[in-house]
Amino acid sequence: MATAIGQELVALLPRLRRFALVLCRSQPLADDLVQGACERALAKADSWTPGTRFDAWMFRILRNYWIDHLRRMRTEGMMEDVEAQTHLIGDPGEEPVMSKIALAEVQRAIEGLPQEQREVLALVCGEDLSYREAAEVLNVPIGTVMSRLARARKRLVEMTAAA
């Protein structure tokens, strides 16, 4: 049993990193997130029901870990950083550097989506979770999953068509 979880965990690492990156958008931070989530998962390994999807169970732990982290950080100076940018204004004279960056159009469109839409898109379309499984990972009703997902995908179609 123990070995099984260890193997599953190692095999899942690339996908955990990918989802962590969707959540926090920083690779070093994503790796820390994965490490912390694995630690947490092992500590409560017996709460996983064999026969259910291990990946969905891990995504949920990972995301909860991230949320806890955000909550913790809220009290530790995060506010100042946002406030420092409160009146940050772009320079309209600055030419877009977009042409220099070979980012795929769709990738950009996804990154432009609000966080709550990005994560549900990642789980359902990227990780092939069902609506219900995604709802469990995100701890929201299935209707919320569907409305966020539909909005995300409509916007994706609009953005990629318009670009």
């Binding site: 958008r25 920083s26 950080m73 530790e76 995060m78 320079d91 030419e95 877009p96 550097v97 977009m98």
Partner: peptide, 24 residues
């Protein structure tokens, strides 16, 4: 390791700057 949230924010800020020329 000290990756406070501000780094995540800085990272997303950088991403925005890179992707659109938004000048941060």
């Amino acid at each position: 390791r000290g990756y406070p949230m501000k780094m995540a924010l800085a990272a997303s800020l950088a991403a925005v700057a890179v992707a659109t020329g938004y000048f941060a």
